[in-house]
């Protein structure tokens, strides 16, 4: 790691002010930042440790929704009784991520900011060209070994995958990200790479995520997160899906459905086409499987990641079947 200064913030506005200096970064759980600093990807001048800011780690669940403080750890939120009962997809996404140790360290706010696992991005010594590290420098991933790269939301500048799990569940459930200055619907929080792959979220310098709000809904209460990977545990998703489902009183007709995909796109990927295709339809395996094809509309594959197209459809279908009670 390069040499850096370390400051411990005691108040939000203090932290915001400190971070307005270029080269200053916020340090929370450190599981992404310290890792990337060791890789030479991040070279902070100053780290502002925000983990001791007061009042940012509460988890409050009421009629309107769940408000999760940005400094709550993943493990703590994952086992919160109200979250587990009313937002099972959130709890499951957290428990299927990383390892118990990392979940004890990583915070909810930091988890949103988790960065790609693209092997080229993580190796600046070996691959100086990376549009995500340095816009305009080129992309080493295009047309090469790309089993783990994105098929959705890509650009001709970057195909790096968003690796997270929690944000996929939050995207499905229509969460809002609260910051020191505003509320941002999660669908607008993450930014596709386009011609600026270095910009991954809409956060401005000095802006701090303070909480995530997940609105209550029947679909949220009947939700799941399904994650598929080669290794049974401690691995990023080859493909994943978060699904919330609400049925009509007949117990068969879909009133409301929320679908988002992980492990396949440059950002957490809402599959509105699947939702539209199923709203008002009767539950059934064939219907679900057909509708799930829409999850990969516009997908494009490179080299060895074409399997994700088929896999994504099947993961979506199985997740819907699971919340729909189809064995």
């Amino acid at each position: 790691m390069n040499d850096f200064d370390y400051l411990r913030a005691t108040a939000l506005d203090e932290a915001s002010t400190l971070a307005k200096t270029p080269g200053t970064m916020f340090l929370a759980g450190g599981t992404t930042l310290i890792d990337l600093a060791k890789c030479g990807v991040e070279r902070p001048g100053t780290l502002v440790d925000i983990t001791r800011l007061p009042d940012l780690s509460a988890v409050t669940v009421d009629e309107a929704g769940a408000t999760i403080g940005a400094l709550a750890t993943m493990s703590r939120v994952a086992v919160d009784a109200a979250v587990t009962e009313r937002y099972p997809a959130v709890s499951e996404a957290l428990l299927l991520a990383a390892s118990a140790q990392l979940r004890n360290m990583a915070t909810i706010g930091g988890n949103l900011m988790q960065r790609t696992r693209c092997a080229y991005f993580r190796d600046p010594a070996g691959y100086p060209a990376c549009n995500k590290r340095m816009p305009g420098s080129g992309c080493s991933a295009l047309e090469n070994v790309t089993r783990d790269h994105a098929i959705l939301g890509t650009s001709d500048q970057c195909i790096a995958l968003y690796p997270g799990d929690l944000s996929v569940a939050l995207t499905a459930l229509g969460a809002t990200v609260r910051t020191t200055s505003r509320e941002i619907p999660i669908a607008r929080f993450f930014v596709e790479p386009g011609d600026r792959p270095d910009r991954e979220t809409v956060l401005e310098r000095g802006e701090i995520v303070t909480a995530v709000h997940v609105p209550a809904s029947a679909a949220a209460a009947n939700s799941t997160y399904l994650k598929v990977r080669d290794r049974q545990s401690y691995e990023f998703a080859a493909a994943s899906a978060a699904v919330g489902l609400e049925l009509e009183e007949d117990g068969r007709t879909i009133r409301d459905i929320r679908v988002a995909l992980g492990g396949v796109a440059t950002v957490p990927w809402r599959a509105e086409a699947v939702e539209a295709a199923l709203r008002g339809r009767r539950l059934g395996e064939t219907t679900i499987r057909e509708a799930s094809r829409a999850a990969v509309e516009g997908a494009r594959s490179w080299y060895a990641n074409g399997y994700k197209i088929e896999l994504a459809c099947r993961v979506v279908a199985r997740a819907i079947m699971e919340v729909g009670g189809i064995k």
Binding site: Y6, L27, G30, T31, I34, D35, K38, C39, L47, S75, S99, A100, Q101, L102, N104, M105
Partner: peptide, 22 residues
Amino acid sequence: QGQCGACTVHVDGERVLACLTL
């Protein structure tokens, strides 16, 4: 780099990775 768990210690009673903790 947070991928093996050999450095697991407890901080305030919780298991964490010492390699990713300053």
